[in-house]
Amino acid sequence: MSPITTRSPEFEIDMKTKQIFFNAATVCMVAVAVMMTQAMFNGSVNAEQRNDGAGGDLRQRVADLEDRQDENDVEFVLVDRTLADLNARINANDADIRAQARSGRAVSESIGRLEKRAKTLEAQQRSLAEMVKRMSLRQ
């Protein structure tokens, strides 16, 4: 047996121990790497869900909105009450028009009265003028 090929049992045991140690270290580092990889993936998914609101979550939110309400009507009717309130506006306009018409009638009545009075005055003026004419003829 040459001295080169000769291995003492202690040396072989030492080598085996080292081998086992390195294998264990490799396995541990791979495991750590895998865990880091998973952590990186999970981290990004969580961040997106937190920031953006996931599509799945959006569906859930829609369902939540529906749950908040009681009934499920077959027919939906949206009524704009302010459109009906236009009645009030139209009525107010009509009232304005009526008031204007009333004041118009009053004005026309007073015009009528004035015209009548003017006619009376004209008649008086005419009679006075005739009287003056007659008196001047007598003189």
């Binding site: 908040r68 009507d73 939906f76 949206l78 009450r81």
Partner: peptide, 19 residues
């Protein structure tokens, strides 16, 4: 349903489909 004058509107009843 986006509205800027909520008090102007009323619905037939509390409808589950419209928020």
């Amino acid at each position: 349903l986006l509205v800027n004058d909520r008090s102007a509107f009323s619905t037939s009843s509390n409808n589950r489909r419209v928020t």
